[in-house]
Design a protein around this nucleic acid. Structure first.
Lengths: 257, 257
DNA sequence: AATATTTACTTGTAAATACAAGTTGAATGA
DNA sequence: TCATTCAACTTGTATTTACAAGTAAATATT
């Protein structure tokens, strides 16, 4: 009897459906973090601004200081803000100097303003057996993958072309979403609670093939940067695979270590 | 009167001297973090081990749970441990982040066994005004730089060619040292107490010029990876500049993030 | 014996409270 | 007027308390 309940709950959790309510399960500190973070990335707060004090944030969000502090801890840790004892928290903007090399996605590396995304191949479900030389396990192969191709323009020049493959596990209605000019990782984080934890990558230099010559509008023998990456998430065993090609004529990849 | 006291305190703080006592100022959660961290790096705890429970750590370190949790938060954030609700905290070992992309030097990335180093240009003192697009400050320009070029062979195949430029500041007898098959950063660390703290880099894809074609023994139009890096050290204001070219035909650059 | 249930752990979230310590500007004194 | 002091902020640290939620093994039930 109880077993059935547990199974039901398990099913709901895996489907991304919350058992009772959508909001009730998301902890307050995470909620506050999301709000403040989006306020920084969306330009409500600008670089150099003084964030509302912790006590002010308490009254606004109707939580206590430890909760607010946990949200601010994370923001500071990720480089969105810098805190000064006695003064307050100063907005630092979208963390830069992280770059595509040490982070996931191109959006956070470039800054959303001058980045345009064109979906070459809309998300569709495919079979796969390997992902850019990264081996797959049985569960990944059996569940198939969500496949999409994107061309990304920086200042109206095509700079990135990437192929993304995501295991088709517990991502309801994913293929029917609109991805144009949206961050893939933002969608995964906000709608499916999938967060990137880290990953591994292989980088090499190649010459553009016909496809890339076409996309990047370059001539024969043009050198292109290739990144094969396997990205870890907070879901155990759930990896995102992506292959990024980059025309480094005008924009070199930048990173810190 | 009070002003003098404040100035004294400021001086002490800046000099790394604590005002009254050494230990009193270090917060407990940081102390606990340091202890647990060293226990992991020194092998007291091994990968897969279950850490003592939070309550056990409380009694051992004579602090309360929020304090312990703050230490564990940081350990988890940095990848030393993984926490599981209901189970406990599992040791994950020393966080990776190896590879030439996230670390300095090729030696530590490849493993010293199959790496041979040939010095193309022996260390010599030169003038400089910029370093691979990185701007220099006045002190750096005035003191000149130690310049060297190396060709590095992995399994007897030339894979890396790098140019290194180091400010000629307080590095006695550096140019007369023997660098063949030795790690540059090891020499700096052991003989000059210079330790690498981090850095920034730009990565791009180029075609081999005549020089690189010769070094890598490749044909015309061969793609080559180029890394321009500015490396921070523990000496404030002391940076090492290096430009690495890499033939990724057989060995892709590997990194974690 | 196989299956539920309970129990005793674990970590996760959250509040209320208190004081320490850094910063800033207004009030106060010479 | 000028320097000092003070008061009112800010963030930093730490405790205490409480309950929620996940895990696993012991226990009770069928």
């Amino acid at each position: 009897m109880l077993k059935l309940l547990l199974l039901l709950q398990l099913y709901c959790n895996q489907s991304g459906i919350d058992f009772m309510q959508q909001n009730a399960l998301i902890p307050h500190h995470r909620k506050v973090y999301e709000i403040l973070r989006s306020h920084i990335t969306d330009g409500v707060f600008h670089e150099g601004d003084l964030l509302p004090s912790e006590n002010e944030l308490c009254t606004v969000h109707k939580v206590t200081r430890p909760t607010i502090r946990k949200a601010l801890d994370r923001l500071a840790n990720e480089g969105y803000i810098v805190r000064h004892q006695g003064k307050g928290s100063i907005v630092k903007g979208i963390p830069k100097g992280i770059g595509i090399l040490s982070l996931s996605g191109t959006t956070s590396a470039i800054g959303q303003d001058n980045l345009l995304t064109h979906i070459v191949v809309k998300p569709e479900i495919r079979n796969w057996s390997e992902a850019f030389t990264f081996p797959l396990n049985l569960q990944e192969i059996e569940s198939g993958c969500i496949y999409l191709e994107r061309l990304r323009l920086v200042n109206n020049k095509p700079v990135f072309f990437d192929i993304t493959m995501i295991p088709n596990i517990n991502l309801p209605r994913f293929t029917s979403r609109n991805f144009e000019n949206k961050s893939l990782f933002d969608i995964l984080r906000k709608n499916y609670q999938v967060e990137v934890k880290g990953g591994e990558q292989k980088i090499l230099s190649i010459v553009a093939d016909e496809k890339l010559k076409d996309y990047f509008q370059v001539g024969s023998g043009h050198p292109v940067l290739q990144l094969n990456r396997k990205i870890e998430t907070n879901r155990p065993g759930f990896y995102i695979y992506s292959q990024v090609f980059c025309n480094t004529d005008e924009y070199a990849l930048y990173g810190t270590f």
